[in-house]
Write a protein that binds this DNA or RNA. Structure first.
Lengths: 337, 337
DNA sequence: CTGTTAGCGCGTTCAC
DNA sequence: GTGAACGCGCTAACAG
C-alpha cells in the first residue's frame, strides 16, 4: 500500500541512492536512469516521506506559532503576516491557541521543541519570569510579539503602546478637553492593558492634569461589552468626563453604545478615541478616531526576523518597534467651551 | 549539545529500551531504575524527539488545515473551532493559506500527504474536478468545509446557503417588498456566491416575482467596498429596488454606506439584509437584519468528523448541514405603501 | 523485569 | 555515474 523509495528503486532497477539523487538533484545522474526513475515515480505514485527526511536532515521546515486566541482581528492579522513571509521562505506553520494560559504556553514551548520546530513566534499578553527562563534555554530561535522582553536573547516586535496612548490622550488635551477618562483593558495584559494605561496617565501628568480615579476603569477584557460596562462605571461618577480614551476599538464601540443608550451624543457630549484601527473603526457611526498600527506588518516582521536568525544572524537582541499613527475621524471634537 | 535517549541511558546505566519504557509507560520497570532514569532525564534536560517517534509509530498527531484566507472572521472562526476540538484529542494543527488558488491548494494537499498529516480539513471557495480527484485518491481522511462534495468519500460540513438565501429573500417579500435586488459575491464561489444567488432567484420565482437583471450585481469579492460598488450599480437602474439582499454582512455595510452617501435612508428608503451575522452586524447603525450561522461550530464539527474517521468510522459519506437562522434587527422594515 | 536487535524511510558517506 | 552500507532517534519485537 505505502510506497517507499525502495519500491521506486526496485521498479526502476536502480539503487535507492540513485533515486534519492534525482529526486533531490543532489548529484548528477545519467539521463537514461533519470527517465527510468521518474517513470517509476509516476507509476507508483511515490511521494517522499517528509518526516523521514526531516529526521535525517535535521530540518523540519516548520515554525511554531503561539497566540492567545485567533478570533480577534489583531491575532488573525498577525498570523496572516507570519504566514505570508513563511510561505516565501518555504516554511510551514504549526499553530496553537494558548487561551492566555501561561501553563499552556510553557507546555506548547516544550511540545514545539520536541517537534523540532526551527523557529517559534510567541504572542503572549504577558510573559512571566519562568516563561522567560524557558525561552532563554529553549535553544530554538524565538521571536516575541507584542511585548518587549528585557534580558533575553529573543528579539521582539512591538509597537510603542505607551507613546501611542500618550499621543491619543494628548490629542484630546489639545482639543481643549480637561476632564478626560479612560476605559482600559485588564492591566495584567502588559502591552494593551498596562502600557496604554501608563501612557494615558503620563500624558495627563505632563500637562499637569489630574487623573481622577472615578474616571478610570480597568476592564475584564477587550470586548464591546467590556467597553459598555466601563462607560457605565465612568457614568456613575458625580460628573462625566468630556472625553474618554479607550484601550481598543471594541471598548470604544461599547462605550459609545452605552452613551447612546443614555441619550448622550458622541462626540458632542463626549469625545471617544479608540486604539487599533480595526476595520470596524471606519465602519461604525460615528467613525472612530483611533490609533492605527498593523498586526499584519508585525507578523511579517516577526517571521522575517526569525528567518534572519536562521540564516546566521543569531539572536539579534533588538526590540523592533513598528510605527503607529493617530487617525482622526468623527468621534472626537474640540471641547465646546 | 543535542541529548538523545542514548545519553540518558548511559547516564542512568541502563539500556535505551528501558528508558523508552519508563518515558512511554509502555512496560513495567522497577522503581529503582525508574528513579535513576527520571533523574538522568532531569539532569540532561532530555526531551524526546517527536519526529523520530512519529516516523516509527506512523502517527504524527497532526491535522492539516487549508483556508483561503485568515483575516476574515468566517475563516478565523473556523480555525478556532477546529483548534478547540483538535486540542481535546491531542492533535496539533498545520495551517496554510491558499489565497483561493486551486493550484496552491493541490500543492498543499501533496505537501500534507508528504508530511504525513493524519487528517485534512479543506475550506475552499470552489472545488474543481481535478481537486476532487486528488482528494479521492489522497488516502488521508479529509473533511471539506463550506461546500457539499458529491461523489466523494470525504464528508463535508456546510450550511444550506440556498435555503438561507431563500428565507432571507422571502422575509423581504413578506414585509411587502416587491422590487427586490441583490448584491452577490462572485459566482465562482459556489457556497457564498452561487448558492446564495440561486436561493434569491428561487424565492422570487416562488412568489411569481420577476428577477430584474439591473437589480442584481455580482461583486468581485465580499468586502465593504464591493458592497459599495454593487449598490452603486443597482442605483444606476431607472428605479431603485425597495429592498436588497446582500451575500454577506460586509457587502451590506458597503451598500448602506453608499445609500447614506446618496442621502437615502436605511431602512426607510431601502431595506437591507445581510448574511453571516458577524460581530459587525449588531454594532453598525442601523443594526443589520441578517442570517446567523456559526463558523466556529462548523470548525468544531469538521474536526470532530475527522477524529471519528480516524477512530474507525471510515469515510462517512455525509454532508452535515448546520443550522442557520434569520436575525431580524433594524435594517429592514415593511414596505410603506 | 531488562538488554539486545532490528528496523521506520530516507540522505549520505564511501568504494567501485 | 552508481551501488552498498551506515545511521538519524526512537519503538517494538525478541530473548534472557
Amino acid at each position: 500500500m505505502i510506497v517507499t523509495i525502495r519500491d521506486v528503486a526496485k521498479r526502476a532497477g536502480v539503487s535507492i541512492a540513485t533515486v534519492s539523487r534525482v529526486l533531490n538533484k543532489s548529484k548528477p545522474v545519467s539521463d537514461e536512469l533519470k527517465k527510468r526513475i521518474m517513470d517509476a515515480v509516476e507509476e507508483t505514485g511515490y511521494l517522499p516521506n517528509a518526516v523521514a527526511r526531516s529526521m535525517i536532515q535535521k530540518r523540519t521546515g516548520l515554525f511554531g506559532v503561539i497566540i492567545p486566541e485567533i478570533f480577534n482581528p489583531y491575532f488573525s492579522g498577525l498570523v496572516e503576516g507570519i504566514e505570508s513571509v513563511s510561505k516565501e521562505f518555504q516554511y510551514h506553520l504549526m499553530l496553537s491557541v494558548s487561551e492566555k494560559d501561561p501553563e499552556r504556553e510553557k507546555e506548547l514551548l516544550q511540545i514545539y521543541r520536541s517537534r523540532q520546530m526551527e523557529g517559534i513566534i510567541l504572542a503572549a499578553a504577558r510573559l512571566e519570569e519562568d516563561q522567560k527562563e524557558i525561552l532563554a534555554r529553549l535553544g530554538i530561535p524565538c521571536v516575541v510579539i507584542g511585548q518587549r522582553v528585557k534580558g533575553l536573547k529573543a528579539p521582539s516586535v512591538v509597537i510603542n503602546n505607551w507613546k501611542a496612548a500618550f499621543e491619543a490622550t494628548d490629542y484630546l488635551i489639545q482639543l481643549g478637553h480637561r476632564r478626560i477618562g479612560m476605559i482600559g483593558g485588564p492591566f495584567w495584559d502588559v502591552a494593551s492593558g498596562q502600557e496604554r494605561y501608563q501612557g494615558f496617565r503620563d500624558a495627563l501628568a505632563s500637562r499637569a492634569l489630574p487623573c481622577r480615579e472615578e474616571w478610570v476603569s480597568e476592564g475584564e477584557g477587550f470586548l464591546v461589552e467590556d467597553g459598555y460596562k466601563g462607560m457605565e462605571i465612568l457614568h456613575s461618577a458625580p460628573e462625566l468626563p468630556t472625553a474618554v480614551f479607550c484601550a481598543c476599538d471594541r471598548i470604544a464601540v461599547g462605550a459609545i453604545r452605552y452613551l447612546e443608550g443614555q441619550g448622550l451624543q458622541v462626540p458632542e457630549d463626549v469625545s471617544v478615541i479608540g486604539f487599533d484601527d480595526e476595520e470596524l473603526a471606519s465602519i461604525i457611526h460615528p467613525r472612530l478616531t483611533t490609533i492605527r498600527h498593523s498586526p499584519f506588518e508585525m507578523g511579517r516582521r516577526a517571521a522575517t526576523l526569525l528567518t534572519e536568525m536562521l540564516h546566521g544572524n543569531q539572536s539579534l537582541q533588538t526590540a523592533e518597534t513598528l510605527e503607529h499613527s493617530l487617525i482622526v475621524r468623527e468621534s472626537t471634537i474640540p471641547l465646546s467651551s
